[in-house]
């Protein structure tokens, strides 16, 4: 009897949770549909200038055209590869720099003012120099994608390394562990949560670097599509590029969340 009541309460609770989830998903879909409908209507009835703001069905038909002539897949693929490469490069190099600074207290003290300056400088301003130095191609764009995240990654992860509970280090040292063991067994795993959260920030930053790089190089990619659409006053093309960016940057973000679940078991 008593048991039965508990089970009843539990199933009612689960039902309540499911209903809540259903309700939230419902609202999310409703907002999306309402937005698209409103946009479509406003565009077709010229409440807003369709030349400038376009509308969803126009973007969708352009999508079909660009897919069938293969150019969208090419531009998206190029940008995606550049972004992923820049993202990985920025994060890995940033983490390595942070490890080097952790290793040598003196090096970290010496480099401190330079890091502050580099961090506050807008990295995209280096774009023209990078492009001339490395040539107008993938290399320059990937470098821009990486350069925008590398310094902030270094600073954030170095800070995380330094705020690791000192008693974890004490445990390792009490067993006679050396500096490398302290880093690999305590400092690095204890900093995984911080590293993951910088990954999430870096997803957004690498997209900024790569898109600006493509603006400047103007050869291929979604950034090129945006600049081209702007120059020929085809804002449907610009908006199509934005939609592609939104979709793929969200997918990348979800990828990082997947890595997070794999890496942090607790």
């Amino acid at each position: 009897m008593n048991n039965l009541q508990l089970e009843k309460q539990h199933s009612a609770y689960l039902k309540m949770l499911r209903r809540e989830k259903f309700e939230i998903t419902g609202w999310q879909l409703f907002i999306l549909l309402a937005f698209l409908t409103l946009w479509e209507t406003a565009g077709r009835l010229t409440w807003i200038d369709p030349l400038l703001f376009s509308y969803p069905s126009k973007i969708a038909s352009l999508f079909v055209v660009k897919i069938s002539d293969g150019s969208l897949a090419l531009h998206t693929g190029v940008t995606l590869l550049e972004t992923i490469a820049g993202f990985i490069l920025g994060t890995v190099l940033g983490t390595l720099f942070a490890a080097a600074l952790w290793w040598s207290r003196k090096a970290s003290k010496i480099s401190d003012p330079y890091l502050v300056v580099l961090n506050s400088m807008p990295k995209v301003a280096l774009g023209p120099i990078i492009i001339v130095a490395l040539g107008p191609g993938y290399l320059a764009i990937i470098t821009m994608g990486a350069s925008i995240s590398i310094i902030i990654t270094t600073l954030v992860i170095y800070h995380a390394f330094h705020t690791v509970e000192p008693n974890y280090v004490k445990v390792i040292r009490s067993f006679g562990g050396n500096k490398k063991q302290i880093f690999l067994e305590a400092i690095l795993p204890a900093s995984f949560p911080a590293i993951i959260s910088t990954l999430k920030v870096n997803v957004g930053l690498s997209w900024v670097g790569v898109i600006v790089g493509e603006f400047l190089v103007s050869k291929q990619g979604l950034g090129y599509m945006i600049i081209y659409g702007f120059q020929v006053f085809n804002f449907t093309l610009v908006l199509l590029s934005l939609v592609m960016i939104a979709v793929f940057s969200s997918l990348m973000y979800m990828g990082v969340e997947w890595i997070e679940r794999k890496l942090i078991k607790n």
């Binding site: 509970e165 008693n167 974890y168 004490k170 445990v171 067994e185 305590a186 795993p189 204890a190 995984f192 942090i264 078991k265 607790n266």
Partner: peptide, 8 residues
Amino acid sequence: QQDYLFPW
């Protein structure tokens, strides 16, 4: 003083 077991 405390266990300081590694949570990971």
